[in-house]
Design a protein around this nucleic acid. Structure first.
Lengths: 215, 215
DNA sequence: ATTCAACCGGAGCAACCCTCCGTTTAGTAA
DNA sequence: TTACTAAACGGAGGGTTGCTCCGGTTGAAT
């Protein structure tokens, strides 16, 4: 029936059986389980790449040569699968950001972070729409990028470069919007940088930053 | 199969039969057709209100006590139905905006327009995700709000208050993002005004507006 | 070798979308 | 009134997808 929920954002509360599977955590998986999990990730990446983030999960299972039940046992929702599939990507995103941020002004580091987040949202067609939920899965990559984003945001705020009332969610929301817009109309290649710049300016404090020097 | 398309934004290219039905245009409809169309609109509003914008269209037809075929004959897609359902709302939105804009600075008028657009995107749960497509349906209301938005945007740009490279689509995209974010996490009631303010600041020129007086 | 918890697989049910086409009806002309 | 036809109706049905359930299989520990 499903009389409520429907927004792109909502997390569906389903699944009740199935022993936890440990998944993300240590190597407590049986050999066959681990093998299947890996096949699923590879297949998911392939299918999502060519059909978009809302491709049929049956297709993913088929491509992995695994039963659909196995898929759902390992990943309790499409978003969880997406998160796992993007995990590596997000992990390196966070790492790279952390590295370069040492030699960069806080504001610039944050801008680059946003830019890459936008880019990541376009990894699979249609991924942008669920980026918010995906990032909330506590995967290594998701947690890392979330933490990194939070760190950069706070740094920029501490320096007075960014409004103090902004939350990380707001930044993610911006990334989603930009990526969504880009997907809507790919005919204008300058749209992404334009929107990125525009939204980013919205973040900035309207008062002088701590270090003076404002346009 | 459907090997491509999937983004929330994409318009599905379907339907080929069915005489045009005139729908939007003058009273060329047969009496029973007009009656059914009206019932469908009422039913759609009810169903969308309680189940969200992605409720089952079968339910809509059922509630209207009409065959599903009749629904599709009158509205060739979910978005078309949504557009028709919101038509009145959008029409008065445009009209009110036009009226009050005469006594307001261009920038302020645009800000109010954006605020109301955000609000409209929340009319039905999940509507925000398709607001972009919906507005592209050439309904009286959609055309009116689009025109009004364009008018306000250009006015603000002419006065040098808003970046000249912004397009109306960008503004709509902002509205979607904000409304989406609001739906994601309703626990923070100040989020909408915060995001609106933030995004709106992004629109603004960084150079002095024509009439001097900045900030 | 035995045992059993963990794991697998896919049949199957429930929804949904959208089309197709036989039937009904509104409106009109005779 | 009647007869006629284009317009409109309705819903069965084919095609997808999501997700669950449970009988069977297997890894690995003893």
């Amino acid at each position: 029936m499903n009389t409520e929920l429907s927004s792109v954002f909502q997390v569906k509360a389903k699944h009740s059986q199935n022993p936890p599977v440990e998944d993300t955590k240590g190597g407590a998986l049986r050999a066959d389980a681990r093998r299947n999990r890996e096949r699923l990730l590879v297949a998911a990446h392939a299918v999502f790449s060519e059909r978009g983030a809302d491709a049929s999960l049956n297709d993913v299972a088929k491509r992995a040569e695994v039963g659909i039940g196995t898929l759902y046992r390992h990943f309790e929702s499409r978003e969880a699968l997406l998160a796992a599939t993007c995990d590596e990507h997000l992990l390196t995103l966070a790492k790279k950001s952390r590295e370069r941020s040492e030699a960069l002004p806080a504001l610039e580091a944050l801008r680059l972070f946003l830019t890459e987040l936008v880019h990541s949202a376009g990894l699979y067609k249609g991924l942008a729409a669920s980026l918010g939920i995906v990032l909330k899965n506590h995967t290594a990559g998701c947690d890392a990028t979330t933490a990194e984003g939070q760190r950069l945001l706070e740094a920029a705020q501490r320096e007075g470069e960014v409004r103090s009332d902004i939350r990380l969610d707001d930044v993610v929301c911006m990334a989603m919007a930009i990526s969504l817009a880009a997907a809507e109309d790919a005919s204008d290649p300058k749209r992404v940088p334009r929107l990125t710049g525009m939204f980013f300016d919205g973040l900035r404090s309207r008062t002088e930053p701590r270090g003076a020097r404002q346009r």
